[in-house]
Write a protein that binds this DNA or RNA. Sequence first.
DNA 1: ATATTTGTTCGTAAATAAACGAACATAATG
DNA 2: CATTATGTTCGTTTATTTACGAACAAATAT
Lengths: 99, 99
Amino acid sequence: MSEVQIITEEQKKAARYAKAMGHPIRIYVLNLLSKQSCCYSGDLTDELPVAKSTLSQHLKELKEAGLIQGEIEAPKIKYCLNKDNWEEAKKLLSNMFDS
Amino acid sequence: MSEVQIITEEQKKAARYAKAMGHPIRIYVLNLLSKQSCCYSGDLTDELPVAKSTLSQHLKELKEAGLIQGEIEAPKIKYCLNKDNWEEAKKLLSNMFDS
DNA sequence: ATATTTGTTCGTAAATAAACGAACATAATG
DNA sequence: CATTATGTTCGTTTATTTACGAACAAATAT
C-alpha cells in the first residue's frame, strides 16, 4: 500500500485554488472581496456582463473551491471570503513564488 | 468606441496565469523550476505519471501562458522560468492577497 | 393572495482541457 | 547510412468549462 507520491497534497491544493482563480470573473469577485469584506451577488450581476445564471455558477465554483462563502440575508445572499482557506491559498501560492 | 471596462487587463492577466497554474502537474513543474533554475523535460517524464505526450502538452501550456521557456540543448530541451513573466505573475497574484 | 425580487437549478450547446498511443521530426551516435 | 534518444504533433476519446435562457424556489412586499 506504499505509494510514492510525486505530486504532494500541497501541490494539489495549490492547483485547486489556482484553477478556481483561473477566470477573469472569479478574479474580479475575489479582488472585490479582498478589499471590501463582503458583497451581494445582485450587485455583481449588475456590474458584470454575464447572465445571472452564469455568475451563479462562478460563485458556486468559488464556493466549492472553498475560497468564498455565502450567507443568506433574505432575499439576498451575502458573500465573503472564507478566511481560513483564503489564507491557505495565499500561503500555498506565495510559496510558489519565493526563492 | 468608448467601452466601460469592468474587468481590467490586470485581472485578465492574473486569471490567465492562475489558469496556467491550475493543474497539479503544472504546479509541480513550476515549483521545481522556482527552486532549481532549470530542468530537462526528460527528467520530468521519468518522474511524473503521465505519457510524454501529455507532459509535452502541459509544458506547451506553461510556455503559451509565458511562465516558462524552453531552450534547445540537443537532443534535449532545457526549460526554465520566464523570469519577467514569472515576476509579473507573482506581482499580480500577490496583489490578490494583500490588504 | 398575488406579485415582485433574488438566486439557483436544469437543459442545452459550443468550446476547451486532459489523456493516450502512434506517427513524425531532429539531432546525436555508432 | 542506420540507429538511438528526445520531444512534438496528430488523431481520437472523454470530461470539464463556459455560457445562455427558461423554469423553479423562497421570501418579501403589495
